[in-house]
Write a protein that binds this DNA or RNA. Sequence first.
DNA 1: GGAAGGTTTAACCAAATAGTTAAACCGGTT
DNA 2: AACCGGTTTAACTATTTGGTTAAACCTTCC
Lengths: 206, 206
Amino acid sequence: MKQEINENTENKIIEAANSVFEKKGYDGTKMQEIADTAGINKALLHYYFRSKDKLFEMIFSMAFRKLVGKLEFLFDENIPVIEKIKIFIDQHTDFIAANRHLPLFIVNEVNRRPEIFVKLLSGIYEKDDRLHRLLAQIEKETKEGVLKPFDPRHVFLNMIAMNIFPFAAKPLVKGLLRMSEDEFRQFITERKRIVTEIIINSIAAK
Amino acid sequence: MKQEINENTENKIIEAANSVFEKKGYDGTKMQEIADTAGINKALLHYYFRSKDKLFEMIFSMAFRKLVGKLEFLFDENIPVIEKIKIFIDQHTDFIAANRHLPLFIVNEVNRRPEIFVKLLSGIYEKDDRLHRLLAQIEKETKEGVLKPFDPRHVFLNMIAMNIFPFAAKPLVKGLLRMSEDEFRQFITERKRIVTEIIINSIAAK
DNA sequence: GGAAGGTTTAACCAAATAGTTAAACCGGTT
DNA sequence: AACCGGTTTAACTATTTGGTTAAACCTTCC
């Protein structure tokens, strides 16, 4: 019983902290607001997570893994590169739409305090073999004449940038392009097709 | 003389406030740090700009105009669309490189407090005729068979996204792709060509 | 020289905020 | 029923921070 209550409270805190930190960033977040959101006392927050820094570090690394984890599909799946990209863009766009503040949160906090992300990096470096397998796959398909030679780093960045930007800058985009919420949704649906086309076009052999 | 001193101090404040706000955002910025950066007393800051909000509003609207102003080239210049895009990407990339924190600053603050940007929008809407001229130009070149039909909103967003993202997420990109500062610079130089190619490809008639 | 007026500073204030403490609470155990 | 452990709370503390005040400091003008 105790355990259940305990985990329940802990989860409520984590959920609340996640929501507030993602939206407002470290500096914009007050412990009181997290407590309020979780429906608990501020002292209880410190009982479960000693300090704002400790709590933040936990939320941040969770968020980071969540975001980077979505990339695993690119490495793991054993399907042709072009097919892979089609599926990835579709899924990734949906994921970002459902987690609008996540990418900006990560980018901001890594900019603000790069140290927080250095330790998380090593966990990624360890999975180097997967990267090599992907590069080998690309090389193979290039030799087969399916793909033309290209720099995967740029393609990767282009894809991520085009996927993330409209959501990260959503109020700006809606404002500048004068869109309603519905038009924005429509716009995003169109984008999936357009971005996929552009990326495929930039790597497919003619 | 008074006037000179006055403007000198005011400029020092504006420069300092700009630098600190852009890097740390509204919440991360302390008036004391601005004062220190400007080499003046905190009270003097309040003498020139009554409150943090007032100072911020000024810096923000300056920054916003600076960023949006760079887009004017797209509307004003009377040269073929494809040529326009080539020049724009080259110049815009250099501009963002020299103002790394600017786009993220704008995006963040508009996300955090959309009202601050509503009033700035009207100033842009007033220049609607330029937008219509650009759209007419595109339509004309499409009819001439130079361009294929496309949605300018997506093309615009794609261009901006690919230009801005690597700088906004610079530490992340450098970390994940394991680049030195020199390699990053090199990478950006390559990007100009690649992004230009991709964008042109997505609008040029075959 | 000194009065006048804008500029600059040191010292201060009040509110916000991260973090602490000690007591109350509550479920299970004997 | 009394107690023991972990959990929760109200009340408090210390520090940070935006903002104020009153005096000191020029510079200009008479």
